[in-house]
């Protein structure tokens, strides 16, 4: 991909797959980190290479604050880390699933400030200050959310891997007012793939909750 020249004079229009744009910066960081390390760390503690990596990582990370399921997290994340990977790998909230990593399957659906979002297509640093709700934050303590109850009752799941995404989308679908009929639900749930084929049961679960008038 061609990129524009940056004002600092580093030419970023390089061949695909090359890491040249960052190379100069990385080298600089590695050198600086070595200096910082010399000043701060007892020499025998870390192997030089590991030490460089750790300090380099610290320089490259961006500080953000996320509110996830009601808990405030102050985090330092690499800019390239997606919200999905942050949730799964750093916060250990593995209920949000990675099915494709391209925004094509819906398994990673979470709510950001109340709206459904594909967390694999969202960089974590873009969510600074926002409220994130994942499947782990949907139930009220031991009391399941009405849609969680309905998915169990209607057997709207088999292997369970798409289920968190289906439920997060279903909640949003009802809140958006797009769950008024079976065809409407099918249309507005079509971003969530279920390879086991639980679709009719999922539609029944959403219909029942929507018709019950319960607050979701």
């Amino acid at each position: 991909m061609a990129r524009n020249k940056k004002t600092d004079g580093v030419d970023e229009s390089t061949e695909p797959g090359s890491f040249a744009p960052n190379k100069a910066r990385r080298t600089f960081l590695k050198k600086s980190s070595a200096l910082v390390a010399l000043a701060l760390t007892p020499p025998p503690v870390l192997k030089a290479a590991e030490m460089e990596d750790q300090v380099t990582a610290a320089f490259e990370k961006v500080k953000i604050t996320l509110h996830v399921n009601g808990t405030r997290h102050k985090l330092a994340v690499e800019p390239r880390v997606t919200l999905l990977d942050l949730l799964r790998e750093d916060l250990k909230l593995t209920g949000t699933k990675k099915g494709c990593d391209y925004g094509q399957c819906g398994a990673c659906t979470v709510h950001v400030d109340g709206k459904r979002v594909l967390s694999c297509l969202s960089l974590a640093v873009m969510q600074n200050g926002r409220k994130i709700t994942t499947i782990e934050g949907l139930a009220d303590g031991e009391k399941l959310h009405p849609l969680q109850e309905a998915f169990i009752k209607h057997d709207g799941l088999q292997c369970g891997y798409c289920t968190p995404g289906q439920i997060m989308s279903a909640v949003a679908c009802i809140r958006e007012g797009q769950a008024g009929s079976e065809p409407e639900i099918r249309e507005y749930m079509s971003g969530n793939i279920c390879r086991c084929g639980a679709y009719p049961n999922i539609v029944n679960a959403i219909m029942e909750v929507n018709q019950s008038g319960q607050k979701v």
């Binding site: 799964r88 949000t96 782990e136 969680q148 799941l157």
Partner: peptide, 21 residues
């Protein structure tokens, strides 16, 4: 019966291969 592992699956608590800590 309802699916015996249904609750784990609808709450995100079911642990798949890549999710062991």
């Amino acid at each position: 019966l309802d699916r015996v592992d249904g609750r784990l699956k609808v709450t995100g608590a079911a642990t798949y291969a890549a999710e062991y800590q």
